[in-house]
Amino acid sequence: MERTLGNGGMGIVYLARNPRLNRLVALKVLGELIAADTRGRARFEREAALAARLEHPNIVTLYDRAPSDAAVPWICMKYVGGGDVAQRMSERGGPLPDDQAAGAGGGA
């Protein structure tokens, strides 16, 4: 683990180095309370299964996920630098211009 990228209702997202591929990835780890809840864990696994089926330039690529019986459920995704939209809007003091919102320019 390099550092925490963010956290929310389901868990924490870390910047991590994949030891086998030696590249930076975003590692989403399910929080303990939700991991202990059967429905929360199923929702997390469904998120991983659905994300793995999506392929689009504007959707983060999912590389791997923990096995269903893992003690700590996680999803390994492509790391995309530059902060998040809320951070960018806060720094700007309002909405992003259309080209930045679409990812076409002004990246950090």
Rank of each mutant, 00 (worst) to 15 (best):
L33D: 13
G94F: 11
L24W: 10
G93A: 06
N22W: 11
E32L: 12
N18G: 00
L33I: 08
D99E: 12
S68D: 13
W74Q: 07
V80K: 01
D64K: 01
A49W: 01
V60L: 02
I59Y: 15
N22D: 12
V80R: 01
E55V: 13
K28S: 00
A49Q: 13
I75C: 00
A36C: 05
V80Q: 05
L62Q: 07
N18P: 02
G83N: 08
D99Y: 10
I59C: 09
R41T: 07
L50P: 05
F44Y: 06
V29R: 14
P57E: 05
P95F: 13
D98P: 02
V72M: 15
G40V: 08
N58L: 14
I34Y: 11
R43S: 14
Y79N: 04
R46T: 08
T61V: 14
E45M: 12
D64A: 08
L27A: 04
A48T: 00
N22Y: 04
S68T: 14
I75M: 14
V85D: 09
L96W: 05
P19N: 04
L96T: 03
C76K: 06
L50Y: 02
R39M: 15
S90H: 10
E47D: 02
V60W: 03
P67V: 11
F44P: 00
R17S: 09
H56V: 15
P95Y: 11
G31H: 01
Q100A: 13
F44W: 07
R17W: 12
P19E: 07
L96M: 09
R43W: 09
N18C: 07
L50S: 03
Q87I: 09
R53S: 11
D84H: 06
M77W: 07
L54R: 14
L21V: 02
Q100I: 02
G93D: 09
I34C: 15
V25H: 00
L21P: 02
D37K: 11
A70P: 12
E47K: 03
T61D: 01
N22G: 05
K78N: 02
P73V: 14
I34S: 12
D99R: 11
W74S: 09
R43G: 03
R53T: 15
P57D: 08
V85M: 12
L54Q: 11
R41Q: 05
A42W: 00
E91T: 03
D99M: 04
E55H: 15
A35M: 10
T38A: 14
V25I: 07
D84K: 03
A52D: 03
A42T: 13
A49I: 02
A42D: 15
D69S: 12
A26N: 01
A49K: 13
E32N: 11
H56F: 13
G93K: 05
